[in-house]
Design a protein around this nucleic acid. Structure first.
Lengths: 111, 111
DNA sequence: TTTTCCTATCGTATATTTGCGATATAGGAT
DNA sequence: ATCCTATATCGCAAATATACGATAGGAAAA
């Protein structure tokens, strides 16, 4: 890659891309699905369900946390994660602004 | 990575992840934004706008096309791309199904 | 025809991601 | 205290992604 060019794009473009990147692995989609379905937060249950080693799951959780998509708190001997719905709303709104709003005028086929 | 584990997840999870991956680079976000804004389809205009080499832009376009997010047709000496709104709708619906629908019951804070 | 312009693809270098085992850390149980 | 259980982090190997220059191909222009 020589030099990373990502910085030359607008902050919004970078933010959206970072959000999408956090969702760009089926394991992380599966984790979010689990967190969305369970009313309570979960922790190592995820390790039992996913076909991945504990350390790998922990890494995916960390990435989701760094991206702000989930919150994690230490609950005694175990860790407890839950979805950060605010972050989802924020990005959902930005995606809508970027694409959905423009869609109406563009509905006609092109090319 | 030794062995790719992606195949062990459900098809829906893989599809959603693939869609997100296509959006996971600011250059591709910028391309989609351009295509959404212009009523007409564009081509090498993108190269002039983005801070990337022509070959790199072409590669990003190819990825977006492979992911099904854009359509491309050859128009004489130049290529013409446009957003595949159907694909966006499809994935938007799946994301909503996965997350938004579950959100209502989960609105209460956790952790 | 030759030249020019536009785009796609190839080859390559480097960066990042993915995955795992091993290890560290920290709380609970004995 | 020692042991056990749950989770995070480190270090490494392999796979992918990113970026570019060089090159190929094809249509229009000269």
């Amino acid at each position: 890659m020589a030099i990373h060019k990502k910085e030359e794009f607008s902050q919004k473009e970078q933010d959206l891309a970072a959000f999408a990147k956090a969702l760009s692995h089926p394991a992380r989609i599966a984790i979010l699905k689990m967190l969305a379905q369970k009313n309570e937060c979960i922790c190592g249950e995820i390790v039992n369900v996913l076909p991945l080693a504990q350390s790998t799951v922990s890494q995916h959780l960390k990435e989701l946390k760094n991206a702000g998509l989930i919150d994690g708190t230490i609950d005694g001997p175990r860790s407890c994660y839950c979805i950060n719905w605010k972050a989802f709303e924020k990005f959902n709104a930005e995606f809508s602004f970027l694409f959905n709003k423009l869609k109406v005028q563009n509905e006609k086929a092109c090319c």
